[in-house]
């Protein structure tokens, strides 16, 4: 499998086919004497900003922490062993509603979008 070509930047969906985001980062664990193991994917604005450089990454993390609290100061991670299918999208065996990934979308829904009539 070619990680950069086949995994990175692909669409991620949960088991209900809800679009969660793109694979913004890939985390590997370095092990003594054994090949590095892919343990998780990362997604969210912080992971993305880090790809543009260390500085934008720090700014975004600080901004996210300020807006969303300590929990939002790190990129969201989904464990690799939850992966179920790699096709047009990458499907993870999880329910996005039980994560913090959509916290900002929920905040938007509850405080902005949902308050506009007809939403």
């Amino acid at each position: 499998m070619q990680l950069l070509r086949d995994i990175l930047d692909k669409q991620v969906v949960d088991r209900e086919q809800v679009k969660i985001g793109k694979v913004d980062g890939l985390v590997a664990e370095l092990r003594q004497g054994k090949p590095p193991r892919v343990i998780a994917i990362e997604l969210g604005s912080i992971a993305l900003a880090r790809r543009l450089g260390a500085q934008p990454g720090r700014w975004t993390a600080r901004l996210a922490a300020k807006l969303g609290g300590k929990l939002q100061a790190r990129p969201h991670r989904i464990a690799w062993h939850k992966v179920r299918d790699i096709g047009v999208d990458i499907e993870f065996d999880m329910d996005v509603r039980r994560t913090k990934i959509f916290a900002w979308q929920h905040w938007l829904r509850d405080h902005v979008v949902g308050r506009i009539p007809g939403a």
């Binding site: 985001g21 793109k22 829904r109 902005v112 979008v113 949902g114 506009i116 939403a119």
Partner: peptide, 21 residues
């Protein structure tokens, strides 16, 4: 599409708040 959010004009705005916004 660029960030992988839910999108679709047929969804209700509360189901894709980022897109609607």
């Amino acid at each position: 599409q660029g960030f992988g959010w839910n999108w679709g004009e047929d969804l209700k705005p509360r189901d894709d708040p980022g897109f609607s916004l």
